[in-house]
Design a protein around this nucleic acid. Sequence first.
DNA 1: ACTCATGCTGTTATGTTATAACATATCGCC
DNA 2: GGCGATATGTTATAACATAACAGCATGAGT
Lengths: 165, 165
Amino acid sequence: MNSTKATGASLTGFGAHDHTRCRAASLAAAEALCAARKLQLTPVRKRVLEILLEAHEALGAYDVLARLAEEGLGSKPPVAYRALGFWVAQGLVHRIEKLNAYVACAHPGRAHDAAFMICRDCGRVAETESHGPFGQSAGEAGFQIETMVIEAEGLCPKCIPGAGL
Amino acid sequence: MNSTKATGASLTGFGAHDHTRCRAASLAAAEALCAARKLQLTPVRKRVLEILLEAHEALGAYDVLARLAEEGLGSKPPVAYRALGFWVAQGLVHRIEKLNAYVACAHPGRAHDAAFMICRDCGRVAETESHGPFGQSAGEAGFQIETMVIEAEGLCPKCIPGAGL
DNA sequence: ACTCATGCTGTTATGTTATAACATATCGCC
DNA sequence: GGCGATATGTTATAACATAACAGCATGAGT
């Protein structure tokens, strides 16, 4: 992936929505969460979350790092990976395995397993909450699930040929 | 990941089973499939599938490549990636996104989306067929799914503390 | 104030995974 | 033989990720 090309990812579905509001809500959730868990909301961490919220799409770690570097907040891979890992651990950022990329969570504040729809044409990513029956069959097999990855790749409404594009 | 360390992955569940039989069945399925689709079952392709069947676990592309190299069948990454890509395209090998690894399909011959349970302790991987309701909600959102990734990470029966290990 | 432990950041170096691009070989077909 | 199609061989590099250690800030305990 060329790091000058971002991987697009509208959240909460492929429709339009109010970025300003969801960004503020996520930041507020992050602050509340850090206070509650006695975690440090450091400049690098805060800025990484903001970058993902502003981009409003899935970004690779090196994309995030490039933006940090522009602002003098760190230029070496571990800086970005550490901050991303912090948010992933807190559940406010999700990693998209198929894209090796990261997105701010669209449902901050609620514990959930996320599921993603990834458009192979425009690259945008939509998050939904997951309610799969998978846990049931895994439970029958005696497997104790800790985390789930659910990602669908295909065509989003705008990119289906003949759609109202 | 150190390429001398293989990622374990028993298929068709975490129980024991007859490797010899499932290996022969998979190879037969591969031959039938290639004949039906007029695809070439070349030495490299055949050997790559055999390597995955013999390993009977998830292997990284460079693990597969190392085994090919031992046998003089190719030593450069594209050789392994091309053969793996071929089988993934045919549905006889699945890629485990969380592990950046590849496993021979446990249900060759049937079209299916696979789901995996990955043990974070012993590294073994079990495949089940997927019947999620995810397609439904995606369909409601107007998203046309082409491929699904469903991976659960956690503890397999043998690795759950207090299990009959 | 001193010292220590902890947690975060800065940096070097390297490890791991993956692909673009082009050269060469093989095979069936006309 | 010449051609197109398919596959492999090879070089080089891109893209993603982490180990390991140094330095610094903060806060607790004395």
